Amino acid sequence: MLSRVAPTGVERRFPETDIIVSKTDLKGTITYANRVFLDVAGLTEREVIGAPHSFLRHPDMPRAVFALLWERLTAGKEIFAYVVNLAANGDHYWVHAHVTPTFAASGAIVGFHSNRRVPNADAVEKIKPIYRKLRDIEDTSANRADGLAQSRAHLNAILAQAGVTYDQFVFSLAS
């Protein structure tokens, strides 16, 4: 498994025509990564297969967003999200992720599939201060559980104030 690297503050970009694809098992362990994923992340297939997808998590990414992601996926629903990831050297890259459960013929969830595209630049600029606020809440709370709960409550308040669902909110950022 890869060790954590410190963020460099350098943003990586990839062509708008490229799609980053990965598959995981039920615990988020990577079982497949396409060439675009490997190139953008600066990793080899040997380094990622069998590794937890969370090793790519950038420290600026709110835990509340991942909690929502896992909640939706384990309920059998898809989710779209703006995500900032770390590359192997500490550079970062933003993606607009579409993550879906993978179902067996029996209907049981057997894993997850993620397609990630180049995000709309305006949407990323709109989500950055929101994510920063969510991280501030998480980082300054008395403990991790309280921080996550307070961050989720803040995200829910943003959605309620806007009168939109999470999905509507995500798609509204690009307009």
Results as ranks from 00 to 15, higher is better:
2 L>F: 01
3 S>E: 15
3 S>L: 15
7 P>H: 08
10 V>D: 09
13 R>Y: 11
14 F>N: 13
14 F>H: 13
17 T>S: 14
20 I>W: 06
20 I>H: 01
21 V>D: 04
21 V>S: 09
22 S>G: 06
23 K>V: 04
25 D>F: 03
25 D>G: 08
26 L>P: 08
28 G>A: 02
30 I>N: 05
30 I>Q: 05
30 I>C: 07
35 R>V: 10
35 R>Q: 15
36 V>M: 01
37 F>G: 04
38 L>W: 03
38 L>F: 02
38 L>Q: 13
38 L>A: 04
39 D>R: 15
39 D>M: 09
40 V>M: 02
40 V>A: 00
41 A>G: 01
41 A>F: 05
44 T>G: 07
45 E>P: 03
46 R>F: 03
46 R>C: 02
47 E>N: 00
48 V>F: 07
49 I>M: 04
50 G>S: 13
52 P>C: 02
52 P>S: 06
56 L>Y: 05
58 H>W: 01
59 P>M: 11
59 P>D: 10
61 M>Y: 04
62 P>S: 09
63 R>G: 10
64 A>F: 11
66 F>Y: 13
69 L>S: 07
71 E>V: 01
71 E>K: 14
74 T>I: 01
76 G>C: 00
78 E>D: 13
78 E>Q: 10
80 F>K: 07
84 V>T: 15
84 V>G: 05
88 A>R: 13
88 A>W: 02
89 N>W: 05
90 G>D: 06
91 D>T: 06
92 H>K: 07
93 Y>T: 08
96 H>R: 15
97 A>L: 00
99 V>S: 02
100 T>N: 10
100 T>A: 13
101 P>R: 04
105 A>R: 14
108 A>Y: 08
109 I>Y: 01
110 V>W: 14
110 V>E: 15
111 G>E: 06
112 F>D: 05
113 H>I: 07
114 S>Y: 05
114 S>L: 05
115 N>H: 09
116 R>L: 04
120 N>S: 11
121 A>E: 15
122 D>T: 14
122 D>F: 06
123 A>T: 04
125 E>Q: 14
125 E>G: 01
128 K>I: 13
131 Y>T: 07
132 R>E: 14
134 L>E: 07
136 D>Y: 10
136 D>F: 09
137 I>S: 09
137 I>P: 13
139 D>E: 15
139 D>V: 11
140 T>W: 03
140 T>Q: 08
141 S>D: 11
142 A>E: 12
142 A>P: 03
144 R>I: 09
148 L>D: 03
148 L>R: 06
149 A>I: 12
149 A>K: 15
154 H>D: 00
155 L>K: 10
155 L>S: 07
156 N>A: 12
158 I>H: 04
159 L>F: 08
162 A>V: 00
164 V>Y: 08
164 V>E: 12
167 D>I: 02
167 D>G: 01
168 Q>E: 14
170 V>W: 06
171 F>I: 09
171 F>Y: 10
171 F>R: 15
174 A>D: 00
174 A>G: 02
175 S>K: 10
175 S>V: 01
